[in-house]
Amino acid sequence: MVEDNELNFTGVCKIKYKGCKMPRKDLVTYPKKVSYKKHTGMTAWLLHRISGVILGLYLLLHIFGKAGYADWFGALTGNAIARIIVLVAFVYHAFNGFRIVLIDFSNGAEKEVFSKQFMVVVLLTIVVTIIGAIPLFS
């Protein structure tokens, strides 16, 4: 068996002798191109990322706007539609973030609850967005 110090971290043999084979079967390697399958987790991840970028940009521009450096942003986000978009992004990002915490610290990654929890996130997002949107339009 090859010792660790005889290999670099990609698993390529630095020295050549009989026991060193390429590629090593005992190392986790990844293909150069990863093809993604349509999956609940993929959808959740993509929506989490998009909503996160929306919220991140909103927060930074909100701070710059309130400090007087981006007055146009206040006018842009003053209408109800823009607020609804931010509300949806926040509510989804919050609930899905909580789901991620459950995956990390509880049983959220188990097959029998994974999809169910995502459906709960979607349902809660719709309900809370409607509740939050009522005062925006009233």
Binding site: L87, F90, A94, G97, F98, G132, P135
Partner: peptide, 21 residues
């Protein structure tokens, strides 16, 4: 990232709904 996320849920919800009122 996880700890800040959980705290942010609370403070943003308070800020958002308070600013509407």
């Amino acid at each position: 990232q996880r700890v800040s996320g959980v705290i942010l849920i609370v403070v943003i919800a308070v800020h958002f709904f308070s600013m509407i009122k």
